[in-house]
Every structure is written in C-alpha cells, then in structure tokens.
Design a binder for these strands. Structure first.
Lengths: 342, 342
DNA sequence: GTGAAAGCGCTAACAC
DNA sequence: GTGTTAGCGCTTTCAC
C-alpha cells in the first residue's frame, strides 16, 4: 500500500510537472492531445488509480455514506441496504455499514467514528437503548456539527429532521381489519419490545382498528414478545394456555409468527380455520413455509431507495428537510385466507 | 461539513502553533500539563473531532476494511458481517460493504473503488459470474497493487492466497451419512447452481459418501436448483412426479429445503417418516418452522471472526499467507430424526 | 500548453 | 515546552 504509484511518479517518468499529469488524466482540453493520450495509456498500463483520500481532503467530500443500523440479521435491514446500494452504487458512493446491536454506547461510538471519517451523511435507524432512554445528545452533537442525518424507521422526535419511514400504524390497521373481515372474534396481538416505535405503532393500529369496529382491547390477548421465533413460541403457549383463546393473531413480525405457528400446529389447531395468522415484514420465507404466511409488507427495499434519493437531493443542495412515509401493503396468504367472510 | 473545526482554528484561539494543539490533543508528555488539559477540555467542549481523512493520507492507512459479497439477503452473509464487526469494531475499524449481486462487472468496479479509497484490505467472496468465467484479472490487478486480499467461501484458485472457508465437502458428507444412518435408501440431492464452489463441494460430499456406503449416485435423484425456496418447490415437484421417489433429501441450502418441505406436505408425505430432510446453513428460522429442519451449520459468524483475525494479523505484519478451513456441524432436528435406525 | 506554488488537516523531525 | 517546516496525493490558481 505504501508503494502505490502516484501522480508524482508519473511526473518523474514523463519529466513534467505533477499538475500536467493531473490535467492529462482528467482529460483537460488544454493539454496537448498526444501527451494526454500517452500519459493516460501509460497510467492505465501500470495500473495507476487516483487516491480518493487526497480528493476527500481537498473537496471536503468523501463520496461515502454512513449507515447505522441496530441489527443486520433480519430481512428488513438487508433489504434497506440493497435499496441504498441500488441507487448509490451508480452514483459512485460507498457505504460504511455499522451495526449497533441495539446498543447505545456503540451507536454513539460509530456516529463519532463516521463523523471523524467525514462521511457525506449518515442514515440511522436508532437503537432500542437510545430510544428507551431518550439518549439524544450524540444525535444533537452530530447535527450541531452540521453532519446531515437521515432517520430511517425509528427517529428520535417529531421535530424538523429528514426521515423515511413506513406507516406502521396503517399496516397494523390493515392486518387487524383483515382478520375482522375473516370473521375472527378474539384477535390477539403479539406486541413487540416496549419503547420501540414500530412496536407502539403496530399496537396502536391494532387498538384503533378494534375500537373502530366496536371491540374492546382485551389485555389477556396482548402478549409482549421480542423480535424472535423463540419469543413467539412462548407467547403463543401462554395464549393457548389461558381461558380465552384467540381465533386470530396479529404479530409484530413474521419471525414471531413462525414461532406461534409452530405451537398452534403442535396443539392441533387448524390454520386459518381455528386461528388465523398475520405477520409483519413479509420476509421472503413467509411465502414458502408449509403454510404460507399472510403479512404486511413494509417496503423495506423501497425505504433504502427513498433514503438514497433523499441523500442525493441533499448532496445537490436541497437544504429543506424532507419526510417520507411509505404505504405498507397487506399480502394475504393461506394463514389467514378463510372462505367464509363475516 | 465545510465548517468543521480544525486544529488550526484551535491554534488561532489559543494563539499557539497547530503542532502544539496536535500534541496537546494527543496527550504528548512534553506539553505543559495545564495547557494540555485546557486545550483538551476546550476541544471537547466545542465538539472538535480529528479529521481521520488527513491521517489516512499521512499514515497510508485508512482503518477501513473493504468487504465484497455477492448478496446480502441470506443469513450466511449477514452472520459473516456480524462476525467481522464483532472483532473489528473494538479494533477501531470501519467496514465498507459492497454487494455485487453475483455480477462480475460490479465486483470489478467495487474492487477498484475500494482500492481508490485505499482501504487497508479487502475481504471478498467472489461472484458467480467471476467464477463461471474465471475472470480473475481484477483480482490479479489488486494483488499486483499489493492490496491485501482475503477470500471467503469462494476463491479463485488454489494458489497461495489468504482465505477462510468452511469444509463444505465434509458438511455434505455428514448430512448424507446421517440420512443413510436414518435408513434412507434413495437419497436425493438438490444441487446448487453450477460453477459455484459450494454447490460443487456439497455435491461431492454427497457423492463420495454414497460411494463409501456402496451406493450409486442416481442422476434422476439429483436436481439442479438456485438458492431460493421457489427453486426448491420446482425441484421437489419434479422429484415427486417421477417413478423413483426419494425417501431422503439433502438440499444445497435451507431455503431450498423449505420450498421442498412445502411440496412434500402438500402431497401428504410425512416428514421424516416418508421423506427425511437435511438442509445446509442452519439459518435461524430452521429451528422454528412447523417442522424443525435438520441442517449443516457452516459457522457463518465464525468465518467473519476468523477473517477479521486474519486481517488483523496481516495488519500486524504477518506476511505469510494463511488458510483456514472451519469444521461444519450437523444439527439434527425433527425433519430427519427417525427412531428406527438402520 | 505547461510549470510553480499553495493548500485540504494533520503529524513528526528538527530547531531553539 | 513550543514553534517552524515539510509532506501525505491531489487540484487549481496564477504565471509565463
């Protein structure tokens, strides 16, 4: 790495000034066309490649986007990354991806490191810890340093920031309404971790929908879960062990649903006849389990794409903050499709 | 971003030379302890943060690792990234993650861009296209530029390179042997895309194991698939439509297995009694489907960790090439656990 | 049409 | 104990 060929080396070789080489390589019209070609060809031949770091220093622009996410093991986050890459690769950007494991200290550390590296902007989906304890100083610091920040999914307050989110409330509403239409009388909800926006929004959608159809939210039918199948298993067991059993379940995500599905089948209830199931996220495997799972798609890839576009517009001088809320889509499959409508 | 506070600004403020500030911030013992503290506190207060780009230029070291992977939508790749981060975050590194979608042109483009950014090394899992057509000039170019390259999973030839892989052959052998032990007589294989090392190795493991137990590989029982559940569905249908039906299936990965499982259940065969199933990768959902899937774990996270260690040892001056081959582990679950052993 | 020089932010060798 | 200077690789303004 220390031996990379530089513009100076080429200058020595051609017995000219570094600036001439620079101009030649950038196809500057004022350089003699022949020398230009000769230099370009030679540079290519010996594998010269501009050192972008020096350009970053010079132009105060690193052509890199920082991405901070709480986890990378779910479809949602990887689809976001795919969306970001799809738009930003052609635009010449690289992605610095940082995974916080929902840990605030790490998030803070990464935010600082990305700033130290002078990335052009940071897209962030806040960690659970940051959320739970409203720890926002690191974000405020970044903003005061005028580092452009774009929030994805979770954001720290309603004030004037750039953000791209899905309308989780609406998605949850659609899912619950669908279960009502399928004739479910006792619709349970597997409620995501407390303090997380998506959990709250999805619960609210469930709640408001039930109310709208003149039903009460029964606390016994709402169980707390983490975002994992294990957690869905536990919750489903506790649901099926109690007096009032559900005939429909809307879960905070698909993984949880898979866990619940396993328990339901083990106990010989029929899906969707005895218990109808709807999840959230529409992960790729949902369509291909032994019972295809109904799910709300939150357009994960689109979040990435939209975020990328927002970022590019900021790079092009758009200083006004923008907020995008994407529409979720209910995908009905076997796990909730009943033939007898209510 | 253009307004970031620099060492020069601090020098102006304290009416001293930039080098004094630099030394103070780096806790240089020769600077007066009081001025040192004063400067440090003030710098912290106004949110000064060293510009790492200038350091990269100076030290010829960017504290960044480039990561090139063919896809990011499977558990395997995300687990690798988790492994890399687990080791490299504490060491102060950032990851530039690039997804090629199995496309050679993109891979080449990214490799070059990472070199332009002078990342300290590049970890790469080659794209299918690169593999299929043995397109290695970009790799050779990177090596000739003395950019450290570490191969993960797929690598381009057996020569002297750094690499971390799993023993796919052995994993496949274990899976097949297990099916034999479970009494399966006609073991089918869902063979991954041609030209991909993992497909070949897994097929070879299957093949060699059958031979070892005195059985023939029946071409009718080997079906070609892609790495998707859809593909598993098709292949399973074609298997079950033919004269000779399998009583055991070893699939190139778990997604494919899920697809196959769906078809098998739809046709009312019992798992594992009629048909036993073993997949590969041990994705998190495998344990939690309605029928828990047996699978070979390729220690994905460990690949990331080992790669990170290899990288760090290279940064510490280890110039000899290292090759690591991780041991796979067969995880037996419902889909293949029969009570009557052969 | 080409060269010389300054500067992006920082550190380190060398003064004093 | 602190200042001065040069330099990492590049572009760009100003000369000529």
């Amino acid at each position: 790495m220390g031996n990379a060929v530089s513009i100076k080396d080429l200058a020595r070789k051609f017995k000219c000034a570094p600036s001439t080489i620079s101009r030649a390589l950038n196809d500057h019209p004022m350089i003699n066309i022949d020398t230009r070609k000769t230099i370009q060809e030679y540079a290519h031949k010996i594998g010269y490649q501009k050192n972008t770091i020096s350009l970053s220093l010079l132009n105060k622009c690193s052509k890199t986007l920082g991405v901070i996410i709480p986890s990378i093991s779910h479809y949602h986050e990887t689809a976001i990354i795919e969306g970001l890459e799809a738009i930003l690769q052609p635009a010449g950007y690289l992605l610095n991806i940082c995974v916080t494991n929902e840990c605030h200290a790490l998030e803070k550390e990464y935010l600082n490191r990305l700033y130290a590296n002078r990335v052009d902007a940071i897209c962030i989906s806040l960690s659970q810890e940051t959320f739970d304890h409203s720890l926002n100083e690191h974000i405020d610091l970044a903003i005061s340093r005028s580092m452009p920040i774009i929030f994805m999914d979770r954001f720290y307050h309603e004030s004037d920031v750039d953000r791209v989110i899905t309308d989780d409330f609406k998605g949850a509403f659609l899912a619950t309404e669908h279960l009502i239409h399928m004739g479910c009388q006792r619709i349970a909800h597997l409620h995501g971790p407390k303090g997380i926006t998506v959990s709250q929004q999805r619960f609210r959608g469930y709640q408001v929908c039930l109310k709208k159809y003149g039903r009460e939210v029964d606390d016994e039918l709402v169980k707390q879960v983490m975002f994992s199948p294990e957690s869905g298993i536990e919750a489903a067991k506790s649901l099926l062990d109690q007096e009032i059993k559900p005939d429909g379940i809307f879960a905070v995500n698909d993984e949880v649903c898979f866990g619940a599905m396993k328990v339901i089948q083990e106990r010989n209830y029929k899906i969707p006849e005895d218990i109808a199931l709807v999840g959230f996220d529409d992960i790729p495997l949902s369509a291909f389990g032994p019972i295809a799972l109904s799910s709300v798609s939150r357009k994960s890839k689109k979040i990435g794409e939209q975020t990328a576009h927002l970022f590019l517009s900021k790079m092009n001088g758009m200083h006004q903050h923008q907020q995008f809320t994407l529409e979720p889509e209910l995908i009905v499959r076997e796990s909730s499709q009943r033939n007898h409508y209510s």
